[in-house]
Deep mutational scan, measured.
Amino acid sequence: MEVRTIKVFTTVDNINLHTQVVDMSMTYGQQFGPTYLDGADVTKIKPHNSHEGKTFYVLPNDDTLRVEAFEYYHTTDPSFLGRYMSALNHTKKWKYPQVNGLTSIKWADNNCYLATALLTLQQIELKFNPPALQDAYYRARAGEAANFCALILAYCNKTVGELGDVRETMSYLFQHANLDSCKRVLNVVCKTCGQQQTTLKGVEAVMYMGTLSYEQFKKGVQIPCTCGKQATKYLVQQESPFVMMSAPPAQYELKHGTFTCASEYTGNYQCGHYKHITSKETLYCIDGALLTKSSEYKGPITDVFYKENSYTTTIK
């Protein structure tokens, strides 16, 4: 009895394709271990004539594949690729409408935090270190965002349907971005203890939790000093293409032309909904596939993004 075979390709990165001759009487799992086709788990399936010449994702289970996976995804987590594939199996079914010149995501599976993050990423200057993220990001900007969303979920250790947080998501993504040249110098002034300067680099240099107003941050924000008295913390120097200011959701007025974009969060910790506000020729609110415009805006804002380049204080 002759062994019926077909020729397929296996890959971990969709760049390096490895030619395989597979036995049609055995499952993919018996031949390769966990195997995925377009995100779908085909591990328990036997090869079919229609699979001839198709590319299958496999887990990096030998040295060659491990090197290829690390170079593309910059992670050695053995569960990463499987999590990416199972997320992709959902995100490829989502709709990605162009809204006001940006790629958004039609609401499904509690994905409003991903839509808000995706919209924000198209408006701030950011370059990702893992080629996987950078490639998928370019495709997302062009309207094909399924891979990018699935990668975000995998890097953030999230599953489809789980509630997510924009600030946490951005923080994970910033860790995989090139923020080497970003720098922030802060000064804390206390009447009792004097003053202390701190220099922050990388992710810490672009994120701040405690106030939404970048102007206020430049002037000074009140913080408790270690001595128990009130101290003032203010920005001395900022070198970065953008800054992200966050605070627990509270009524906040966004003035046209003073910011790049913002995240609105309605609801409580267990259950809520994100919308995205962007400042173009007027203010726009993007909620999944829905767009509304207004000249002014007041609502429960939790993150505001500002364009920056270089700032030095005039406070002496």
Results as ranks from 00 to 15, higher is better:
Asp77Leu: 05
Val3Gly: 12
Ala136Arg: 03
Thr10Leu: 13
Thr159Gln: 11
Glu144Pro: 01
Val99Ile: 11
Asn16Lys: 09
His90Gly: 12
Thr260Asn: 06
Arg83Trp: 02
Tyr96Ser: 04
Ala150Val: 01
Glu215Met: 06
Lys255Ile: 15
Asn157His: 13
Thr282Asn: 10
Ala247Glu: 02
Thr5Gln: 12
Phe80Lys: 04
Asn268Ala: 15
Val58His: 06
Ala115Glu: 04
Phe32Leu: 12
Thr10Met: 07
Thr313Tyr: 15
Thr312Gly: 08
Ile286Gly: 03
Asp77Gln: 07
Tyr311Ala: 07
Lys293Asp: 09
Lys218Cys: 07
Lys54Pro: 04
Tyr234Phe: 09
Thr232Lys: 10
Leu173Asn: 02
Glu162Asn: 00
Lys201Arg: 14
Leu81Arg: 05
Cys149Tyr: 05
Val203His: 13
Leu133Arg: 03
Lys229Val: 07
His90Leu: 12
Gln122Trp: 02
Leu200Ala: 11
Cys190Pro: 01
Val206Ile: 08
Arg184His: 03
Tyr311Arg: 08
Tyr137Ile: 11
Thr116Trp: 00
Val206Trp: 01
Lys92Arg: 15
Ala145Val: 05
Gln238Arg: 02
Val185Phe: 02
Asn309Val: 11
Asp165Leu: 04
Asp77Glu: 13
Val236Asn: 01
Thr314Met: 14
Ala140Ser: 08
His276Arg: 00
Pro249Gln: 03
Ala108Ser: 07
Cys190Leu: 01
Lys158Thr: 03
Gln216Val: 08
Leu200Pro: 03
Lys46Tyr: 13
Tyr306Ser: 00
Leu173Met: 15
Phe305Thr: 00
Ala140Phe: 10
Arg4Phe: 12
Tyr155Asp: 01
Gln31Met: 13
Lys7Asp: 09
Lys44Pro: 11
Leu200Cys: 12
Phe32Arg: 07
Glu144Gln: 09
Ile152Val: 09
Gln230Ile: 15
Gly143Ala: 04
Gln197Ser: 12
Glu71Ala: 14
Gly53Trp: 10
Gly29His: 09
Cys227Ser: 02
Glu264Trp: 03
Thr19Pro: 13
Asp62Trp: 07
Ala140Leu: 14
Cys156Ala: 07
Ser310His: 15
Ile15Gln: 10
Tyr297Asn: 03
Gly164Arg: 02
Val8Gln: 00
Pro241Ile: 01
Val42Thr: 10
Tyr155Asn: 03
Gly210Met: 01
Cys182Ser: 07
Lys229Pro: 03
Gly288Cys: 03
Cys271Phe: 13
Gln197Gly: 06
Met245Gln: 02
Lys233Leu: 14
Glu68Thr: 07
Thr260His: 07
Ile124Ala: 02
Gly82Asn: 09
Ile315Arg: 15
Asp303Arg: 00
Ala154His: 02
Lys93Cys: 07
Thr55His: 11
Ala132Tyr: 04
His74Gly: 07
Cys227Thr: 02
Ile152Cys: 07
Tyr297Ser: 03
Leu133Thr: 04
Tyr138Ile: 13
Glu264Gly: 07
Gln175Lys: 08
Leu151Gly: 04
Ser79Val: 08
Leu291Met: 12
Lys219Met: 09
Ser279Val: 06
Pro248Val: 07
Val67Phe: 14
Asn89Gly: 13
Pro249His: 04
Lys92Ile: 10
Met170Glu: 00
Gly143Thr: 03
Lys183Pro: 02
Cys112Arg: 04
Thr91Lys: 01
Val243Asp: 02
Met209Cys: 13
Gln31Cys: 11
Tyr84Glu: 00
Arg141Asp: 04
Thr198Arg: 13
Asn61Glu: 13
Thr11Glu: 04
Leu88His: 05
Cys225Leu: 01
Tyr252Ser: 08
Thr258Gly: 08
Leu88Glu: 05
Thr76Tyr: 13
Met245Cys: 14
Glu215Thr: 09
Ser263Cys: 12
Thr282Gln: 14
Val166Asp: 02
Gly39Leu: 08
Thr43Lys: 10
Tyr269Val: 14
Met24Pro: 14
Ala117Thr: 09
Thr11Asn: 04
Gln230Glu: 10
Thr120Val: 13
Gln222Ala: 08
Glu296Tyr: 14
Val67Met: 14
Gly299Pro: 03
Gly257Trp: 01
Gln216Tyr: 04
Ser25Ile: 06
Lys106Thr: 15
Gln230Asn: 11
Ser240Lys: 02
Leu291Glu: 15
Val21Trp: 10
Lys158Ser: 05
Cys149Asn: 00
Thr91Pro: 03
Val166Leu: 08
Tyr208Leu: 06
Tyr234Ala: 06
Val8Pro: 05
Val8Asp: 02
Asp165Lys: 05
Gln196Pro: 02
Gly257Tyr: 02
Phe128Gly: 01
Ile124Met: 06
Pro34Trp: 08
Arg139His: 11
Ala289Met: 12
His276Gly: 00
Lys219Ser: 11
Glu52Thr: 10
Ile105Gly: 06
Val243Ile: 10
Gly267Ser: 11
Lys95Ser: 15
Gln222Ile: 10
Gln196Trp: 13
Thr266Trp: 06
Asp41Arg: 07
Pro248Tyr: 10
Asn147Gln: 13
Leu65Phe: 10
Glu296Cys: 13
Thr64Pro: 09
Gln175Asp: 07
Lys7Ile: 08
Tyr113Thr: 05
Cys271Trp: 15
Asn14Arg: 13
Thr64Cys: 15
Tyr172Leu: 14
Lys219His: 09
His276Asp: 00
Tyr214Ser: 01
Thr10Asn: 09
Gln216Phe: 05
Ile6Cys: 09
Ser263Ala: 15
Lys54Gly: 11
Pro241Tyr: 04
Val243Ser: 01
Ser50His: 09
Pro249Ser: 01
Glu162Phe: 02
Tyr297Asp: 00
Asp135Met: 11
Gly29Val: 06
Ala205Asn: 02
Gly33His: 03
Tyr28Ser: 06
Lys316Asn: 15
Ala69Thr: 10
Gly82Lys: 15
Arg4Asp: 14
Gly164Tyr: 03
Gln216Leu: 08
Lys233Glu: 10
Ile152Glu: 03
Gly267Thr: 11
Ser246Gly: 03
Ser171Asp: 05
Lys158Leu: 03
Cys182Ala: 11
Thr27His: 10
His48Lys: 14
Val166Arg: 01
Lys255Val: 14
Asn129Lys: 11
Thr278Gly: 07
Lys93Met: 07
Glu168Thr: 11
Glu296Thr: 11
Ala145His: 06
Val12Glu: 08
Tyr284Cys: 15
Glu68Pro: 04
Lys54Phe: 13
Arg139Glu: 12
Ala87Asn: 14
Thr302Gln: 00
Thr76Pro: 14
Leu37Pro: 04
Ser279Trp: 04
Phe242Met: 00
Ser295Phe: 11
Ala250Ser: 11
Ala250Phe: 08
Glu2Ser: 08
Pro224Glu: 13
Arg167Tyr: 02
Val99Asn: 06
Gln230Asp: 10
Ala87Ile: 07
Thr75Gln: 09
Tyr274Gln: 03
Pro130Ala: 10
Thr278Leu: 09
Gln238Cys: 01
Thr91Val: 08
Lys307Tyr: 10
Glu253Leu: 09
Asn110His: 03
Ile105Tyr: 02
Asn110Phe: 03
Tyr252Gln: 08
